[in-house]
Design a protein around this nucleic acid. Structure first.
Length: 359
DNA sequence: AACATTTGACCGTC
DNA sequence: GACGGTCAAATGTT
């Protein structure tokens, strides 16, 4: 690419490279400290994530999202967190097309999937609840799927013009797995604060349990999770008939506004925040066992947000909500890149910290 | 009464 | 025309 990278992209790349360097340093330290192969493997995979993220940036080129904002309207620009969302001056006459453009807009919204595994135990913990307030607006039987798909929108769509939606689809293969597809970023007042929220370690572990059980690092994380969960009380509110029935519904009511538990601080440091961001979309490469995921998905094996999360002080009720905290689009402006990562073949040995990368 | 959910109808896309 | 996504009236819940 010979084009100019904009400042945000340079910053992003710089952060990625810095993270990669830090991971390398960590590997050196781990190597010096006795036999911790799992740690070394973890670092290797972290590095791989960074490299692939950088490659994605490289492939998408300056401005990152050439497919976005094509056509008469710039649908994603309504998200204050969308990268490169500067208003287009030639969109001034779009008012009379708003209604017709709604579907276009929605189609252009960032979209990604998460997977939630709900065991009989975790059902009791309100696992499936995330930190936003959702209102169910539809349910559909999907062709070829055993279970119906449920549609949710932000409770504050009308009051705050927040167009975030999500779809929940129970997996055919494993009924304890729910694919949650998020679409659009939360633009409601509380939703914007979700920038710092981590991907849910709970979800990550569930997916890890189910789909990627080949790494010690994951087992370690599971131990952490299990210990953590022992401290939780059962959230009986999460156990309603709807969840047991084929037409599963996520409870959506919250008393905290759009974003739940706004008093929680997830990350004690910005470093963790950055890790959150990167962790959220590195997974398609690192979770080869999830071929069905066509967009960004949260990988438990790659997302390590435990630090800030578990260090924070929470009440029990907070924890049962936080444990299912979702990966908000607001975490990652790059979620605007709605493309299939499966199509990208990557060489794990590619070096991005070469001088010419920014050229 | 206010809000959430259910569900059949409608609409856009392929 | 089939399908997925959304709407909106009816119904349920608090």
């Amino acid at each position: 690419m010979e084009h100019k990278w904009n400042r945000e992209q340079r910053t992003l790349i710089s952060e990625l490279i810095q993270g990669m360097e830090l991971a390398k340093q960590l590997r050196v330290h781990l190597g010096a400290a006795s036999s911790v192969e799992s740690g070394d493997l973890l670092v290797q995979r972290i590095l791989s994530s960074y490299e692939k993220a950088l490659l994605i940036l490289k492939l998408s080129g300056p401005m990152g999202q050439p497919q976005q904002n094509v056509g008469a309207t710039s649908g994603v620009s309504e998200s204050p967190l969308s990268i490169n969302c500067s208003p287009r001056s030639d969109d001034l006459d779009k008012d009379n097309q708003d209604i017709r453009d709604v579907s276009k807009k929605r189609k252009m919204l960032p979209r990604w999937t998460d997977q939630v595994r709900v065991s009989s135990e975790s059902m009791l913990e309100g696992l499936h609840d995330d930190r936003y307030s959702w209102r169910k607006y539809g349910q559909k039987d999907i062709l070829g799927a055993k279970y119906p798909r449920s549609y949710y929108r932000c409770t504050y769509r009308n009051t705050q013009n927040c167009w975030a939606t999500k779809q929940v689809q129970r997996s055919d293969e494993d009924p304890t797995i729910f694919d949650v597809t998020y679409r659009g970023t939360h633009t409601c007042a509380h939703g914007n604060q979700a920038v710092r929220q981590p991907a849910s370690p709970e979800k990550q572990e569930y997916k890890s349990n189910n789909l990627n059980n080949n790494n010690n690092q994951q087992l370690q994380s599971q131990d952490i999770l299990l210990n953590f969960r022992k401290g939780l009380k059962v959230n009986t509110e999460g156990l309603d008939n709807k969840e047991m029935a084929p037409s599963f519904s996520f409870p959506s009511t919250t008393s905290f506004g759009c974003l739940k538990s706004e008093n929680n601080s997830f990350s004690p440091s910005g470093v963790l925040d950055n890790n959150n961001v990167f962790g959220n979309f590195s997974s398609p490469f690192m979770s080869p066992d999830t071929p069905e995921l066509n967009y960004f998905s949260v990988s438990p094996s790659q997302t390590n947000n435990f630090g800030g999360f578990f260090n924070a002080q929470h009440s029990e009720s907070d924890l049962t909500e936080l444990i299912s905290a979702n990966t908000s689009a607001t975490n990652s402006p790059i979620m605007d890149l709605d493309f299939s990562l499966d199509q990208v073949e990557l060489d794990p040995n590619i070096q991005f910290d070469t001088p010419g990368f920014f050229s």
